[in-house]
Design a protein around this nucleic acid. Structure first.
Length: 567
RNA sequence: UGGGGAUUGGUGUAACGGUAGCACGACUGACUCUGGAUCAGUUAGUCUAGGUUCGAAUCCUAGAUCCCCAGCCA
């Protein structure tokens, strides 16, 4: 007898439930939205998406998927002076890359400018909005302090005058900033956002989509909830700083009597060793502290992608950090762990020597070359194996030799024997030094009987190191990345300094003359591989035929480094 | 100083008056042709002080600390 299917709502590896799901479940219980769940991701196209946005995208899209609902992509493009086409395109690409599917529902707040305008006239007619002539400075003064503000002298204009003035604002009769349309709410409210907030401001600016059709533009609060409402959004999820805007969000949709989505706020993502604010990311780019929005050190999605991050790793990370209203700081290593976890299963292995040290196998015949079998991915038998040439002159990592090793050093040293991965046991005979006493070459011998890496006599070696045949090696540039900032909290600076003073001068190290095994010669841009014992590396777009450039996405866990650090 | 939020091991997150759990890290050990991976184990927490209750992370009172708000930015 077949057992009835277990009606488990959650997949076994589903992320833990969060407070937003509690809210949605409650709505479904009471039928507030008729069981519908419709979320959206509302970026302003004035910058590139970063990991903080990824959290929001995964949250919103994940909720839609989990509840069998829908997910919209909507550009919040209400400020023509800061928004650009370039950003719209990059955002679309990033959201798609991450794997969120908006099923063609790509909208713009600017799609609703006409509707918003009509609604504004309606609020004027109902005495709920008025045209104000106060200057920006005056308005700030009238808005008051903690105790409360005072009414604008223009607050009680007649409906007719307001309508006339608003229409003339829209017609372009007044210069930028001359007047605003304000909602008439409560100048005594302890909540500043309720002290007659600005709905429209005059900006004679060219909009990336509506061109010159408008010279009045809606403010965020006036456009956002209304856009949500128009799209039938049920759960309007945003970050904590908008919590205080919620009464205004509610006021507008209630005043209009339109579909009322529920705004829910969650804590934005904060990372150690980096910054995640658009303003700062823009500054890093425009002032040249990094090489662009997609610099692999940047926490942007395009930077992460270029560095070698996978969408799966980022999604996994977002699941793991959860969702709450607690404003904490997540250790950047969580992200790195998620990447390692993903790439460990997927990335093929190869051997590459970043800082080469020449090795001559004295008893290996001159001119002889053997093609040795190397396993492509021990984690994935289906990945098969490849041939890698072995010969008399090889390169190994400088770090893999110590003239005077500590007792727990498993690698090469005079008189010590190690395994050359997939090849032979090799014993170091002597080290050749240059005039300065620097080791420039190792003289070694190999044991013919250990071909493939195992000794027939059963003898063991502690260490296995990687190597590349000198005559067959492919040269490459390798870029090593470290945290963008030197301190966990970039704002941790002495008086008079800024976060920029905490930029990590060693965040980028460029290595040239690295030696790769020949199978990597034709690796395409974006190809991600594990350099055995070193980390995961991704072919950078700066590569050209015959000139490979790799980015180090993340190192492997390095137990040896940890042991050494302890001493 | 007014208002809005938040506070559970090192970090993140559960527990909705009834055994404080999970993940990551860290530490041990096993295994290993990557000092990787994997496996096993250990570690460590309810902001404070009162109160209600048979019983409090959870409810009440007072306090502490942190974040956000006075753009015609979002």
């Amino acid at each position: 007898m077949a057992k009835p299917a277990d009606p488990k709502p959650d997949k076994p590896d589903a992320p833990p439930r969060n407070f937003i799901q509690e809210i949605i479940d409650e709505h479904n219980r009471t039928g507030r939205f008729g069981g519908r769940v419709h979320t959206r991701f509302p970026p302003e196209p004035n910058g590139y998406l970063h990991l903080g946005h990824a959290k929001s995208i995964c949250l919103n899209y994940g909720l839609a998927v989990r509840y069998g609902g829908r997910f919209n992509l909507r550009y919040d493009d209400t400020n023509p002076t800061t928004e650009e086409r370039e950003y719209v395109d990059s955002i679309r690409e990033d959201v798609r890359w991450l794997g969120a599917d908006w099923e063609g529902r790509e909208f713009y707040a600017s799609d609703y400018f006409g509707q918003l305008y009509d609604w504004a006239e309606r609020l004027i007619r109902e005495g709920k909005a008025y045209v104000c002539d106060l200057t920006q400075e005056q308005m700030a003064e009238y808005r008051g302090d903690l105790k409360g503000g005072k009414d604008s002298p223009y607050r009680n204009r007649s409906v007719e005058e307001n309508l006339d003035l608003f229409r003339r604002m829209r017609a372009g009769e007044f210069p930028d900033g001359a007047r605003t349309l304000r909602a008439k709410i409560d100048m005594a409210s302890p909540n500043f956002h309720l002290r007659d907030p600005v709905m429209y401001r005059i900006k004679h600016a060219h909009h990336h989509r509506t061109g010159d059709a408008w010279c009045v533009y809606p403010s965020y609060d006036w456009a956002h909830g209304e856009s949500d409402s128009i799209e039938g959004i049920t759960h309007s999820i945003c970050t904590l700083e908008f919590e205080i805007h919620r009464p205004l969000y509610d006021w507008y949709v209630e005043a209009l009597g339109i579909h009322h989505p529920q705004q829910i706020e969650f804590a934005r993502l904060n990372f150690s060793y980096t910054v995640l604010s658009k303003r700062r990311l823009i500054q890093l780019v425009t002032e040249g502290h990094v090489r662009g929005w997609d610099d692999p050190r940047m926490p942007t999605l395009s930077g992460a992608r270029r560095r070698g991050y996978t969408p799966e790793a980022i999604r996994r990370f977002c699941e793991r950090i959860g969702v709450s209203k607690y404003n904490g700081v997540i250790d950047i290593s969580w992200l790195e762990d998620a990447l390692r976890e993903d790439l460990n299963k997927k990335a093929p292995r190869a051997m590459a020597v970043l800082r080469p040290l020449k090795v001559v196998i004295e008893n290996y015949p001159e001119g002889q070359v053997e093609e040795l079998d190397c396993v492509n991915n021990p984690e994935d038998p289906a990945a098969g194996s490849r041939k890698v040439p072995f010969s008399r002159v090889l390169y190994i990592e400088q770090d893999d030799f110590r003239e005077d090793p500590p007792k727990d050093f498993f690698r090469l040293a005079p008189g010590k024997e190690v395994r050359f991965r997939w090849a032979y046991f090799v014993k170091c005979v002597s080290a050749v030094k240059d005039a300065d006493g620097k080791v420039v070459e190792l003289r070694c011998t190999y044991d013919t009987a250990t071909k493939g890496g195992d000794a027939p006599d059963g003898r063991k070696v502690k260490g296995t190191i990687h190597w590349v045949s000198a005559a067959h090696a492919v040269d490459a540039e390798v870029r090593l990345y470290d945290h963008l900032f030197a301190k966990p909290d970039p704002d941790d600076v002495p008086e008079g300094q800024t976060y920029l003073d905490n930029l990590n001068p060693k965040s980028l190290e460029v290595l040239t003359g690295c030696k790769l095994e020949p199978s990597l010669a034709a690796a395409p841009v974006g190809y991600t591989v594990q350099f055995e014992r070193l980390g995961y590396f991704c072919v950078d777009k700066d590569s050209a035929p015959g000139k490979l450039v790799f980015n180090r996405a993340v190192t492997l866990r390095d137990t040896w480094a940890k042991i050494e650090k302890k001493k």
